[in-house]
Nucleic acid binder design. Structure first.
Length: 685
DNA sequence: GCGGATCAC
DNA sequence: TATGGTGATCCGC
């Protein structure tokens, strides 16, 4: 399958057309963009990269999924179809009966928020194409830049190709938080229980305001937007509708600096929904859109109802319900009290470009900490750092969890998760590290570009023990909005189970509105964002105290961590390293490494390759250091071979990856690969 | 309970 | 040179 893709690449005169990126989907500010050109540039810049290859792999997987569904689809008999037709009709009627037109929801969305804030603080940027982020990743772009096809989540180096004049501004999260706070003070005046979706958007139930002041929702929206502009200097867009799903769609319609009101009228809603592309709906992303289009020919929300019988035939009930509710324009209308986090995590991608000197400094620090930390192997450095950061974060919120998940992203962008559920609840860095190490060691050797740790199943989280709370009738399901499958869908879970945790945590006020999503996803310095990681109360001004108190500590901790993290050479260690766990399996590697060592150390303490000095007593450390050079050497050789490698080899790699991720047995066979000499390093991912 | 995938921001 | 981080949910085992 991958081979045929390669062929079509060579044959097709426009190969970029088949490279499906998310960058050309219709979004605000993308009108009039030469999509063909954007597609071509993105393709040209990506072609051949590890990232690109992984995208192709995923694409092939989705195609297979689509083929499978088509097959299932074609197998449906007439009697099947008539049966499903009845089921669908009944379901749709039930959902229709749950329609609630009594509330008025407003969705506010700041226009190009980060970019707009940066322009406020530096007026020189005004009118020029600009984006916030780095050469690796953009968080947002202003409207001048969007004209060139520059988009959020696009790597900066591709954006520069599309728009050579593009100005890149690094993220400054403190600034965005400050302005976000200002906007929220305005929101609060209209709905004290507003839902902060992220730093730059919020949902407000303006039913009461409209009623009390006897004003139209349209005027409220205009007034709110004017207030936001007056108090921040920033523009925003708003959408008003009978539920949150529709309000969100509406806020996008007249963006930027505009608004759209959809009346609380069934006919108006059905008309509005009828021609709406499904991709506009929150929860329907690239893949779902693709599947629905390719398998059922569904492009608009209305068609969700037309093809209702197929949907309930091939999807689960909850998924089909979601699709139907989209077709009917139904959404959440309730005001959730609070939502509690269900997991906490920490992950880091290692930069591939690392200065040699910097690298050495890191290694030195590694050794210091290594010594301090007793016997922790050097290559678990990343895990050490992550565990410490995670533990710190957990302690800030008084969280204890019993499930630990290790996330790895290999050099070929394949993502793997490995989890354990423990008897006891943990939150110390030592405990986290102990179990993370086990999980990690079981995966070695592997070349990784990212490591992540996540803890879930918190002490006091009884959601699994009270399934009756989440088991609802179909009517409840829709009216409470769970059919939307969106993040606060469990907001109706009562909070009595969490009280013990909350009360012991000084940083959390009872009755708070949580903002789990407020962390800046793109900010390299995101650790600064302590306040948004914990639950913040917007009903109280006390939240601000929490913010400032956490920042400094996190900041200094972070800077120490970033210096530690991220180097190609360390990645190499994950491949060629020798874990000091006494395992016989590893002994051979260790011997090899010792031979290297004797060649390496001058007068028993000075490295002949880089000059670092490690006292004779630092036996383990010197061994690790040797491994480092050894891995480095291997990697250099590997990359030089890869540069001249032929496509067949990468095919081979893919097969190995696929096999290996299939079962645990395969993982064992991979481990046996340790006995294979050098060329082993060239074929694994 | 685990792991892969999808989605949002 | 170079394609992120955090959290949630669903599905199939």
């Amino acid at each position: 399958m991958e081979g045929s893709e390669g062929n079509s690449d060579a044959v097709s005169p426009h190969p970029w057309q088949s490279y499906n990126t998310v960058y050309t989907t219709a979004k605000a500010g993308m009108e009039g963009v030469d999509k063909e050109k954007v597609q071509r540039v993105v393709y040209e810049m990506s072609k051949g990269s590890k990232y690109f290859q992984n995208e192709e792999r995923k694409e092939a997987f989705i195609k297979q999924k689509i083929d499978n569904m088509r097959l299932q689809f074609s197998k449906l008999s007439h009697s099947d179809l008539s049966h499903y037709q009845k089921v669908a009709e009944r379901r749709i009627l039930e959902l229709e009966a749950s329609r609630d037109l009594s509330r008025i929801w407003l969705h506010v969305d700041m226009d190009a928020f980060y970019a707009a804030v940066e322009t406020l603080s530096n007026p020189m940027l005004k009118g020029k194409p600009m984006a916030v982020g780095s050469m690796s990743m953009l968080s947002t772009a202003n409207y001048e830049a969007r004209k060139f096809g520059v988009r959020s989540a696009m790597p900066g180096f591709i954006a520069r190709k599309l728009c050579p004049e593009l100005i890149l501004v690094p993220t400054d999260f403190k600034k965005y938080t400050h302005y976000s706070d200002l906007t929220r003070k305005v929101f609060q005046r209209y709905d004290p229980n507003f839902i902060a979706g992220s730093l730059d958007e919020a949902y407000l139930d303006i039913t009461e305001v409209c009623r009390e002041r006897n004003v139209k929702s349209e005027e409220i929206a205009q007034e709110l937007r004017d207030s936001v502009h007056e108090e921040t200097g920033l523009t925003c867009s708003a959408g008003v509708a009978s539920n949150r799903l529709l309000a969100k769609v509406c806020s996008d319609i007249n963006k930027p600096n505009g608004q759209y009101v959809l009346p609380n009228d069934r006919l108006a809603i059905m008309t509005f929904i009828s021609s709406l592309p499904i991709r506009k709906i929150g929860g329907i992303g690239k893949v779902t859109e693709h599947i629905l289009k390719e398998v059922f020919g569904i492009n608009t929300c209305e068609q969700m109802l037309d093809k209702g019988s197929y949907l309930c035939a091939l999807f689960s009930q909850s998924t089909a319900d979601f699709f139907y509710s989209v077709g009917l324009g139904l959404g959440k209308t309730d005001s959730p009290q609070a939502s509690f986090r269900k997991s906490i995590s920490n992950e880091r991608t290692f930069s591939a470009t690392e200065d040699e000197v910097l690298l050495q400094k890191k290694l030195d620090k590694c050794l210091v900490i290594l010594n301090h930390k007793k016997d922790e192997p050097c290559k678990l450095m990343f895990a050490v750092e992550l565990a410490e950061m995670l533990s710190t974060d957990m302690q800030k919120e008084g969280l204890h969890g019993r499930t630990l998940t290790l996330k790895l992203k290999t050099a070929s962008f394949e993502v793997r998760n490995r989890a354990v559920t423990l008897q006891n609840y943990i939150n110390s860095s030592e405990d986290i590290l102990k179990h993370a190490s086990k999980l990690l060691k079981a995966e070695l050797p592997v070349s990784v570009r990212l490591i992540g740790l996540r803890v879930s199943q918190f002490n006091g989280d009884k959601s699994g023990a009270t399934p009756d709370r989440t088991q609802k009738t179909i009517t409840n399901f829709i009216t409470s909005g769970e059919a939307n499958r969106k993040k606060d869908s469990f907001s109706d879970v009562t909070d009595h189970d969490f009280i013990s945790d909350i009360e012991t945590d000084p940083s959390i006020d009872v009755g708070h509105t949580s903002q789990l999503d407020s962390r800046d996803p793109f900010d390299g310095n995101h650790s600064l964002d302590v306040n948004h990681q914990s639950c913040t109360l917007w009903k109280n001004d006390g939240a601000e105290k929490v913010q400032t108190s956490g920042n400094d500590a996190a900041s200094s901790h972070h800077s120490a961590c970033t210096e530690m993290l991220g180097s190609t050479s360390f990645q190499g260690q994950f491949e060629g390293e020798n874990v000091n766990d006494g395992s016989n399996l590893l002994e051979e590697d260790r011997l090899n490494s010792c031979q290297e060592t004797t060649m390496l150390w001058l007068n028993d303490y000075k490295c002949s390759l880089c000059g670092i000095e490690l006292p004779p007593s630092f036996v383990e450390e010197r061994l690790e250091h040797s491994d480092f050079h050894f891995a480095e050497k291997l990697q250099k050789e590997e990359s030089s071979i890869r540069q001249t490698s032929i496509p067949i080899q990468s095919q081979d790699q893919k097969h190995r990856i696929n096999r290996q991720s299939k079962s645990k047995k395969q993982k064992l066979s991979q481990r046996e690969g340790r006995y294979t000499p050098i060329d082993y390093f060239f074929v694994k991912e």
